[in-house]
Design a protein around this nucleic acid. Structure first.
Lengths: 114, 114
DNA sequence: ATTACTACTTTGCATTGCTTAGTAGCTTGA
DNA sequence: TCAAGCTACTAAGCAATGCAAAGTAGTAAT
């Protein structure tokens, strides 16, 4: 029961959602993920996600100088990416609801408890 | 953005949770998953999960005749499995909360609007 | 010049869902 | 009897993805 498996797919959707909130770059995205509660998202985890999203035309890239350090790659979502994000949210909601039904079934017995 | 990836890890925890609700067998578990809202969980998806849970000593198996059809393998959770399930629920809640923060941040603006 | 911080890249591995195909017991009807 | 159809489990092989580890570079400060 590896923790990593729970992230699969979810991470990609979350990264897309973060970029949808405003143009941003890799390092900043890692910070946003950690601030939301995700722990230990390394660079080796995030950057392949960005590469994939870019390859699939869901985000697009623009290079710009950083005030400190090397060149940054700023990302924004494409219209196709926005569609995908909406679709993802829908599917995630479905699965999360199904999982909650099973996992937390015993915690919702407040109202029909005989 | 494959739908299958969203299931990773979640499925295993859900199967464990279903068995924890009472002794059951493969075919019945598939029914329970579909009833909870999971779509198209095939046998080739479920049985490897059961094999893995068994190998990891989280569930144990008992063979018994079926009123119709071949012998069934009835599963129950071990004490170790119960611990794992509790741990899984905790981790799932954390990740689900983090994901919701990012994905549905814009939907919770009822109280500090304007 | 060395250290440290920012920022992105690359390689390779392990896990896991899924497709497909196969085995096997039981019941029913022609 | 024997084929069809249901129940029930098994097995082989593929693809996607998170992740660890190591590397490349630019800038700044000591």
């Amino acid at each position: 029961m590896d923790n990593a498996q729970l992230l699969k797919g979810v991470l990609e959707g979350c990264v897309l959602a973060i970029i949808a909130q405003g143009e941003t770059y890799g390092y900043e995205i890692i910070g946003a993920l950690e601030q939301a509660g995700f722990e230990d998202i390394g660079e080796g985890t995030l950057y392949p996600v960005l590469t994939r999203l870019d390859k699939n035309k869901l985000i697009q890239c623009r290079k710009a100088k950083s005030p400190l350090g090397p060149v940054r790659k700023y990302y924004t979502v494409t219209s196709e990416g926005a569609e995908c994000l909406a679709d993802f949210k829908f599917r995630y909601r479905q699965i999360a609801a199904s999982a909650a039904t099973i996992l937390f079934a015993d915690e919702k017995e407040d109202y029909h408890e005989s």
